[in-house]
Amino acid sequence: MTARTSGLHHVTAIAGDPQRNIDFYIQGLGLRLVKRTVNFDDPSTYHLYYGDEAGRPGTLMTFFPWRGVPAGRVGAGQSTSTAFSVPQDSLGWWKDHFGALGVEPSITSADGEDRLVVRDPDGLVLELVASSTEDPRDPWDSASVPAEHAVRGQHSSVLTVADAESTLRVLIEDLGMTPVSQSGGRTRVAAGEGGPGRIIDVVADPRAQRGLTAGGTVHHIAFRVPDQATQEQWRRELVERGHTVTAILDRQYFTSIYFREPGGVLFEIATDAPGFDVDEPLLELGRSLKLPPWLEPTREDIEHSVQRITLPQENNPAVVDR
């Protein structure tokens, strides 16, 4: 393959109540809601994007929230854990912070890195990693989390599969990632120069039950590509290598292609551009419901179908409902 990913673009998961999701990711994790839009394939529900100030690729966590969605099952064929990068020596602060919110985290160590493990309100497994590698990314200046402890962006994702060999082959040969380490049934690969935001851990667990994608599970993970021309080239090469790949889809803030790797995990390749400020100013990101041009004619129906939500004050200087 001639194309190589530069790292993670975003992770998308399934949630239940959107207000509960917003409160946790803004006040709990200290992220910014950078876009309030809808699921383009099901406009009756939101698509919520969280990240840094501008929603830069590599900082993004996104959700499809469906009220009343049944709980999923975490297992083989899924991304089973999503990790965020935080500064060294900050995990004690985070433990106290989550404790004050009634969330009970645990602190573990893996790959020489200390990790705080917590579940969001839908049971999604999250990790905060005090990485031994310095993370130069600037955090969102949140009222709930001081900058010296704040999330810098994605750190890594864990993929659990029954047989790691074919999954690793896709990551290395088709996405251009490089093997970093291997211990037991866990193999780490990295994009580019490695470090936070560029890491995938593949866990081989032949005894794991097949995962069921629903509430509290990851729907897909997305990898970065700089522009659509590179994406088109990459799509051609993936098809030539035998993958079933979607057409290029317009997601308004980037374009995407999707394919499922042999272990069952759904992969997306998303462009860095144009970004989240194409339809609202940087200072107003996330404050109102934004729709792509092809859904604007049905705005009134969509606004009546989605749940009314309120943003915590720290997301923006001024808060408005939809």
Rank of each mutant, 00 (worst) to 15 (best):
T45P: 02
N39A: 06
Y50K: 04
I22R: 02
Y46G: 04
D42H: 14
D42K: 10
S6G: 09
V11E: 07
V34P: 05
G7H: 13
D23F: 09
G30Q: 04
F40E: 09
D23V: 08
I22T: 03
S44V: 11
L31H: 10
N21I: 04
S6W: 12
K35T: 03
G28W: 05
G28E: 06
Q19E: 01
G30F: 03
V11S: 10
D17N: 14
V38C: 02
Q27W: 06
T45G: 08
V11P: 12
R36D: 03
L8I: 07
G51S: 02
R32H: 09
G51F: 01
A13S: 15
A15Q: 15
T45S: 06
Y50H: 03
Q19K: 00
R20D: 15
T45N: 11
H10C: 05
L33K: 08
G28C: 02
Q19T: 00
Q27T: 09
G7D: 12
Y46I: 05
L48T: 02
A15M: 10
H9V: 11
N39T: 02
D41A: 11
V38L: 00
S6N: 14
N21Y: 05
T37H: 01
A13R: 10
D41H: 12
P18T: 15
V34M: 11
L29G: 12
S44T: 15
Y50D: 01
D23C: 11
P18G: 03
S6C: 11
H10R: 15
N39D: 00
Y46C: 05
T45F: 13
D17F: 04
A15L: 11
H10Y: 06
I22N: 00
H9N: 12
R32Y: 13
G51C: 01
L8F: 12
I26W: 13
Y49C: 00
R20V: 10
R32W: 13
H47I: 01
H47R: 04
K35Y: 06
V38K: 00
V38H: 01
F40V: 05
Y46Q: 05
V34S: 07
L29D: 13
G7L: 08
